[in-house]
């Protein structure tokens, strides 16, 4: 998408490219959040759900796996794990909290403050982003952890707050992984010839397997997807994860 020039030749270049990429995604996310706020304020549930999905997918494309961006990043879309009252806990906030409300009959009274807090958190992240140095060692971790998160949180059903959008979110995670791969491809190729191409093919297979589950009605909740199609998705993500697991070691200098 953004990477139109030759792949970065050094890790520093890759990190810079990632920064540019993230800044653009956060700008988009802010727009989706504003749309969401308006729809929630109008009690327009259908539009609000649509805007939530666009926002959540946008956040997935940022590729903020495993708590990158620290507390500022964690505030955008934390899960409900570890909260005493689970999804109903007053401490639960962010994009997944909005999802919970939109799929559990909550209206503007409950959700507008949550969206406003989201916007404030986005502003805070945006303001700090230039200072938030991405550790170069994080890039190869990100390459495999984005999809680890997708399998752990989305395809498992654990992270779902009612939308059943696991496949839509996983699809966005595939895009994020493809972006990070594009940034690291040159480096990876020099470390292990043919490896980035193999990853690229496996990610394409995964994307195709996910797309095949989509119906004319749109995305289908993962448990409702026919077993044969789920097996294709599970096989494709499993194969990709096994391959991606080699990436951090390739960059490791500890040996």
């Amino acid at each position: 998408m953004l990477i139109t020039a030759a792949p970065p030749a050094t890790m520093d270049d890759a990190v810079s490219a990632y920064h540019v990429y993230v800044t653009a995604r956060l700008g988009e996310l802010r727009q989706h959040a504003l749309t969401l706020k308006a729809a929630v304020g109008n009690a327009d549930v259908a539009s609000a759900r649509q805007a939530w999905l666009a926002a959540q997918q946008c956040w997935q494309r940022v590729g903020a796996a495993y708590g990158s961006f620290g507390d500022l990043g964690d505030a955008i879309a934390p899960g409900s794990r570890g909260l005493q009252a689970g999804s109903a806990d007053p401490e639960f906030s962010g994009l997944r909290r909005i999802e919970y409300g939109l799929w559990h009959g909550q209206g503007p009274g409950e959700l507008v403050p949550v969206v406003e807090k989201l916007l404030a958190d986005l502003d805070a992240l945006d303001a700090k982003l230039p200072e938030l140095a991405v550790d170069p060692a994080d890039m190869p971790l990100r390459l495999h952890e984005i999809l680890e998160d997708a399998q752990r949180d989305h395809l498992s059903g654990v992270g779902d707050q009612g939308s059943g959008m696991a496949l839509a979110l996983t699809r966005a995670d595939v895009e994020a992984t493809q972006e990070v791969l594009a940034m690291l491809a040159g480096l990876l190729e020099s470390l292990k010839a043919g490896y980035p191409a193999a990853l690229d093919a496996q990610l394409s297979q995964l994307a195709a397997a996910i797309d095949a589950t989509k119906t004319t009605e749109g995305w289908v909740a993962y448990p409702e997807v026919p077993l044969a199609q789920r097996q294709r998705v599970n096989a494709a993500i499993g194969r990709a994860l096994e391959s991606l697991a080699l990436a951090p070691a390739l960059f490791s200098t500890d040996d």
């Binding site: 292990k192 697991a245 080699l246 070691a249 390739l250 490791s252 500890d254 040996d255």
Partner: peptide, 8 residues
């Protein structure tokens, strides 16, 4: 074997 030193 994965052929990658330090791999899982």
């Amino acid at each position: 074997l994965s052929g990658v030193t330090g791999a899982p």
